[in-house]
Design a protein around this nucleic acid. Structure first.
Lengths: 187, 187, 187, 187
DNA sequence: GATGAATGAGATTTCATTCAT
DNA sequence: TATGAATGAAATCTCATTCAT
């Protein structure tokens, strides 16, 4: 039941927004009562927190699996991370939108648990770029922190428009992006 | 007074969110009463609509001024658009955040007026890329719609983290991004 | 309207208790809506606080008027205080019951404003007894603090049973009590 | 277990109040579940009723043991009752507070069983005073019902402030009160 | 132009109680 | 004896909106 409430809430929060979705909306769509909700969650924010934690932890985990694999060079690792993020939209898209949009609804004491994990994700990319610079895969003059934010922009923004069922597959889109990031668009 | 209400609301909506900011909050922070608000706006949504329309119209206007200038080539136009967007954060950052985050609070009939303008902005970039391909500035095989979304990702995402008073200026950041987009990071 | 809400609430709180009386009960009995209540009070506790402050301030004021009058000796002052308290039941009885019974519903920061005034009332009686000992009106060996609490017990308890419209008037009851306190019941 | 629930509830009801203490609070503090509670009690009110009945029956019993002893005169019996009541605060204080404060939470049909016993306690004191008047121990002109209420005021009020571990013992306090009641404070 | 009183719908949350296991 | 899931009614509080002045 807790699982069902969480899943349904993700769907509703994505569509209407966290504040705009009432507990009543959630329980009505499941055919239970508000009491049931509060049997499993002590507040509305706790549910939001659950969604945030689960999403970002999964993401860092998937990222670090790629980073710590020994088979690839930096370019390939970067490509895999981009692909992982865009491929993720299929089943984690709604969670991601909630993550980016609703974080302000968490209280400071909850934010404290989320922010460092989110930052870790960014720092990991920064670090990957530095590695690539050091081993000669990437250009020497790059500003790693800003480039990392650029890469994150490309991938995170795709949550706003990418439709897995659309004309381009996740693989096609990420190939295009990786090519742009690595080689640029200029002739 | 209408101006003052709008400005103050942008500040509050950005900080706390649209739904989380009450009309009471707005008028309190201006030292007037709710009656005053309703003298100038017929609803809360109307104010949000005003903010959206003003933001996106300004943006397209600035973009088209760059596009229709005859002095530059496509690369330079792209660079100027990126710089315009990031330089914009200084005074339009709050509006931009509201634009990206609160659009879901507009009713369908209002959305209908916003979406086409927003799309125009994206299509203009798409078109610029096509132009660059055609005149040999950009690579031939590029997928213009996806690349346009990549560029938008880089710039729009910077509203989440770029601080005009930070260690890098808007010009420095956009130079880094333009270099990445045009030439890539790979050696 | 604020006045009307307060008066009606005192009546309801006395009869049913503070926690057992809902805002709905209050506004229903006045034929207004909950919104009206919250226009005048920011919370349920604020109203309770208002009632407490008003009651205890009035009481200390009336007490000090008696104490600082120069015409009477200590015995007479004590008698007048007893009479004031019991005579008070007619229009302040409900407030008094609320004061004694519902104080636990105030938050610590509110209690801090009430307790010192309440204590002042007790200390004033203690002081009066000391004065009477010093000037020879009262017995020398008396324990002033405990006696003060005894006197308060006699008067405060009467809020539980005294009915102004009953067979004994406030004057008659307080005469009996004053006689008991001053002269005792033993032959 | 029923015993344990009752004891724990008395502690909680005294500290936080009956309405403010939830069944959940009670069972949590005992490490059991709500089902357990409802195995032993059919409602929340039944528990409150149990506490009331037990308290007042014990009290009348102790009082009547004093009254029906043949060794003492009326003055001594009065003194013993006062001492019994104040000495009682040590282990019955919480029950007493609940008795005085939470009676309003009982339904009329339950109140009907409590009120007569409570009244009996008062009437017994009234009767003792009459006896003392008749046998010449007390003054002739006394109004027995009012004096009884005065005595009850002195003792019952002490539940609000008397601390068994404080600087005065129950014996000392009751001696002071008995002296005041019997002989008065005036020289 | 602006105020302040009032509304009514709806939000989150609490909680006594029930009941199948 | 005891549990844990679920209910439903009610509580406090918020807020966009209206309107007479």
């Amino acid at each position: 039941m807790k699982e069902k409430i969480t899943e349904q809430s993700i769907r509703l929060f994505e569509k209407k927004g966290f504040t705009e979705t009432s507990i009543q909306d959630i329980v009505d769509s499941l055919g239970v009562t508000k009491g049931t909700y509060y049997y499993y969650f002590s507040s509305k924010e706790e549910l939001l927190m659950d969604i945030h934690i689960k999403y970002i932890k999964n993401l860092v985990e998937a990222q670090e699996k790629i980073l710590y694999s020994e088979h690839n060079n930096c370019k390939e690792k970067l490509a895999e991370i981009v692909y992982m993020l865009i491929g993720n939209i299929d089943n984690q898209g709604p969670s991601a939108k909630i993550f980016f949009r609703e974080m302000k609804n968490l209280k400071p004491e909850h934010l404290e648990k989320i922010i460092p994990i989110r930052d870790q994700f960014r720092i990991n990319i920064e670090q990957l770029i530095r590695e690539g610079i050091d081993n000669g895969e990437f250009k020497e003059h790059l500003n790693a922190p800003i480039i990392a934010l650029g890469v994150l922009g490309v991938t995170n923004w795709s949550y706003q428009w990418f439709k897995p069922e659309g004309s381009k597959s996740a693989k096609e889109v990420s190939d295009i992006f990786v090519d742009m990031i690595l080689n640029g668009v200029a002739k």
